[in-house]
Simulated assay, not measured.
Amino acid sequence: MSGFLTKLILVGSFVHAGLSCYHCFIDTEDSMRLCWGHILTEYNIRNVDSCFKMLDRMFNNNQNVIEAAKVGRGYDSVLRKIMMAEIMPIVEEFDQAMNNETEYEDRLQAAADKFITIASGLPRASGCFPPCGFQALGAVYNCMSCQYDTCEFPLDCPLQEITVEENNRTQMWCEVPFILPSDIQIVWRYTEVKTVLMDRFKEVTVGVDKLYSIPSARPEHSGTYQCEIFSQERSLVRIYYHLSVTPRAGVGHVKLQDVFNQALLPAGHFPLTLPQPPFALLRLPRSDLLTVCLSSLLLLLFLTLGLLYYKTTNKKNMKETDQEHEPLRKRYILHTT
Rank of each mutant, 00 (worst) to 15 (best):
Ser235Ile: 00
Ser244Val: 04
Glu161Arg: 08
Ala112His: 10
Asp95Val: 04
Glu92Phe: 14
Leu55Asn: 03
Pro215Gln: 08
Phe115Leu: 04
Asp56Ser: 14
Thr41Ile: 06
Phe260Trp: 08
Thr205Pro: 02
Leu294Gln: 08
Ser213Cys: 10
Arg80Ser: 14
Pro219Ile: 04
Ala217Glu: 02
Thr170Leu: 02
Val251Leu: 07
Leu308Ser: 14
Ala125Asp: 06
Phe153Lys: 06
Leu272Asn: 01
Glu324Gln: 09
Leu282Cys: 10
Ser50Thr: 07
Phe129Cys: 08
Asn317Cys: 03
Asp183Gln: 09
Glu29Asp: 09
Ile82Val: 04
Gln96Val: 11
Asp322Ala: 10
Lys194Cys: 11
Thr163Gln: 15
Asp288Cys: 11
Tyr310Lys: 14
Ser13Arg: 05
Val251Met: 07
Gly268Val: 04
Ser235Tyr: 03
Asn47Phe: 08
Phe230Pro: 12
Tyr104Gly: 03
Pro158Gly: 15
Arg80Glu: 06
Leu282Thr: 02
Leu256Asp: 07
Gly207Asn: 05
Arg124Ile: 00
Ile229Trp: 01
Gln63Gly: 13
Tyr190Asp: 09
Val176Gln: 12
Cys174Arg: 04
Asp258Gln: 14
Gly138Asn: 05
Gly72Ile: 04
Pro275Thr: 14
Pro327His: 12
Val206Met: 00
Arg80Asp: 07
Ser13Asp: 09
Pro177Ser: 06
Thr273Leu: 13
Ala267Lys: 12
Leu10Pro: 00
Lys53Ala: 13
Cys24Lys: 06
Leu159Pro: 00
Ala139Lys: 05
Lys330Glu: 05
Pro278His: 12
Leu55Asp: 12
Arg286Asn: 08
Lys315Arg: 10
Asp183Leu: 05
Ala112Leu: 02
Glu166Ser: 12
Gln96Ile: 08
